[in-house]
């Protein structure tokens, strides 16, 4: 049981890192439908380096994060001339392209996947997730963080105020790529096996949705989203398994997605800004004076 809980803590930690990887671009107004693909890049880079060359784990991790960060940078730079729907399409295409390429590269094991010799335990992963969490929180409290949020709300005015909107977006997207790469590397080291199906477009969608549902106005949203959508499906799996009903893995994966889908649709109708909003958080903390309302 304790092993089970450990495993869940690690998955939660990885999901938290991934959530912030997706959050950073979204916080500047860019939907990234390729989160899992950047994770795949990091995971395969880590797997490849550790099988081919071998190096201290932190070095491998740094290299894999840089590789996916670099790819994110190039993609962002070339695609951000356009915005809106084209960016969504580009990240989507990128995700499909990455899995399409991995399947064809024998050095990466093709469709069979790759075994990773090095192992990292749950402890370091949880610590790194904590560092990422704190780091993103600090970042959002800087003027750069303010610029990101201003860009999200109104890029024309942000530009007028002297904020380099394009630079801000590219930086946020790149940083997101770095975080996804770290999550990917850690994934490879923890599970000691990577296969391309893990990082398919459904995973990218899943990732984006739980960040959006958590809420992207504050740094807490992604954390809540990641926690909810890691823990609830596990509980659900536990319940289903104990009812003796389902046995096949497919069944509970499907349920997980269906529940997320239903929550998404309902949330977009009822509360499209996500669970955690600024106004809501303020009210909860009760640290505001009542302001006059619009009549």
């Amino acid at each position: 049981m304790s092993g089970y809980l450990d495993g869940m803590a690690v998955i939660l930690a990885l999901n938290v890192i991934l959530a912030y990887a997706v959050f950073l671009p979204v916080a500047t107004g860019q939907l990234n439908l390729g989160g899992a693909a950047f994770q795949a890049v990091g995971a395969y880079a880590a797997a490849y380096i550790s099988t081919q060359y071998g190096a201290p784990l932190p070095v491998i991790l740094a290299v894999s994060a840089s590789v996916s960060g670099l790819i994110a940078f190039v993609l962002a730079l070339s695609i951000l001339r356009t915005k809106g729907v084209y960016l969504v399409l580009a990240t989507f295409a990128f995700a499909q392209f990455v899995s399409g390429v991995i399947i064809n590269v024998d050095a990466l094991g093709g469709a069979l996947g790759m075994t990773v010799p090095e192992h990292v335990g749950g402890g370091p992963i949880i610590v790194i997730a904590g560092v990422v969490l704190v780091g993103v929180m600090l970042l959002m409290q800087t003027r750069f963080g303010l610029a990101m949020r201003a860009t999200h709300d109104d890029d024309t005015v942000a530009e007028l105020m002297g904020i380099g909107v394009r630079r801000t977006r590219v930086a946020a997207f790149t940083l997101g790529g770095v975080l996804a790469g770290i999550a990917g590397g850690l994934y490879a080291f923890y599970f000691n096996f990577v296969e391309v199906q893990t990082f398919d477009s459904l995973s990218s969608i899943y990732l984006l949705l739980f960040v959006l549902l958590g809420g992207t106005q504050t740094v807490w949203g992604p954390l809540i989203g990641a926690a909810f959508f890691t823990i609830v499906p596990e509980l659900f799996r536990y319940v289903v398994a104990n009812m003796g009903g389902a046995s096949a893995g497919q069944l509970d994966t499907s349920w997980r997605f269906i529940i997320l889908g239903i929550i998404t649709v309902v949330m977009m109708v009822a509360r499209p800004e996500g669970v955690v909003t600024r106004t809501g958080l303020g009210r909860l903390l009760g640290n505001r004076r009542a302001a006059p309302r619009e009549a």
Partner: peptide, 21 residues
């Protein structure tokens, strides 16, 4: 009016300082 809707009053005003950073 084009204030940033999700930023607080003081944050909006601070965005205006950006040109001086």
């Amino acid at each position: 009016i084009r204030l940033m809707p999700h930023l607080s009053v003081v944050e909006n005003v601070m965005v205006g300082q950006h040109a001086r950073t």
